[in-house]
Design a protein around this nucleic acid. Structure first.
Length: 248
DNA sequence: CCCTGATTCGC
DNA sequence: GCGAATCAGG
């Protein structure tokens, strides 16, 4: 396998989205994890938090003699303190803790990576955003020529199995941005098809009722799952969900 | 052990 | 340029 522009593009995208080298390699197929890492470096992609490299960047300062308990330096995690007694909070309709029923179907294409963008938070205070949370992982799938979403080699069962009945629906917070379905609104029965681009003020998700057993509504399932066409007559390919042209 | 990314080095 | 081998931390 060679590094075609397309493959390099996928590598970049996934790498930047925080996918591990293994996942990227698997998705690309035909390459090893090492190949991916090697390529990433050659491309000049910035190294991401490596378990091995914790770049201290302070070779001199904290080197040899520093017996003193360097304590003040510790950032001290801003622990998301949980108030024991919120008492009389006049908070309008703030269910606060987003009761996350469960981890959500693992095999869902576009998910949450973008929300990590610190850029601007015009929406709401959201004080409970985990500060140290790494990067919400995105599950990327390559998109075939026909626009269908490929199933990554390792994955079985394309659509997540029908979710068992949930027992509680966390009350919908508020009208987010005027009815737009935000990341926080996603759940098992809401179509997760992204509309617009991450970072854009109006980026949101479809929000329709899902096609039971699928992460998308019937409409978007139509986009996400398409019959494999004979190589012969496939159209050049409109890359879909991720990084592609506007889907709207 | 498993995983991770970084680096090296022969090709 | 490529990627297996190796290293090293979690």
């Amino acid at each position: 396998m060679s590094w075609t522009d397309e493959r390099i593009e996928t590598l970049k995208t996934m790498w930047e989205a925080g996918q591990t080298a293994s996942q990227i390699a698997e998705a690309l197929g035909g390459v090893s994890r090492n190949a991916v890492i090697g390529k990433a470096h050659r491309l000049g992609l910035q190294s991401r938090p490596s378990p091995v490299k914790q770049n201290d960047a302070e070779p001199k300062a904290a080197a040899p003699a520093a017996p003193a308990p360097a304590e003040p330096v510790v950032p001290a995690a801003p622990a998301p303190e949980r108030r024991a007694e919120p008492a009389a909070q006049d908070a309008p309709a703030a269910p606060a803790e987003t009761v996350r029923p469960d981890p959500a179907p693992a095999a869902t294409p576009p998910a949450a990576p973008w929300s990590a963008a610190p850029s601007a938070a015009p929406l709401e205070p959201r004080r409970d955003a985990e500060p140290s949370a790494p990067a919400p992982q995105t599950i990327l799938r390559s998109v075939g020529p026909g626009g269908f979403v490929r199933q990554s080699p390792g994955e079985q069962q394309p659509p997540a199995t029908p979710a068992p009945p949930r027992r509680l629906v966390p009350a919908k917070p508020s009208a987010e941005i005027a009815g737009k379905t935000s990341l926080l609104d996603l759940n098992d029965r809401i179509c997760k098809w992204p509309l617009g681009h991450p970072g854009e003020p109006d980026f949101h998700f479809c929000g329709e009722r899902v096609n039971p057993g699928f992460p998308y509504c019937v409409d978007h399932c139509g986009h996400a799952y398409q019959a494999q066409l004979p190589r012969r007559d496939r159209r050049p390919a409109p890359p879909l969900p991720f990084g592609g042209p506007r889907v709207r």
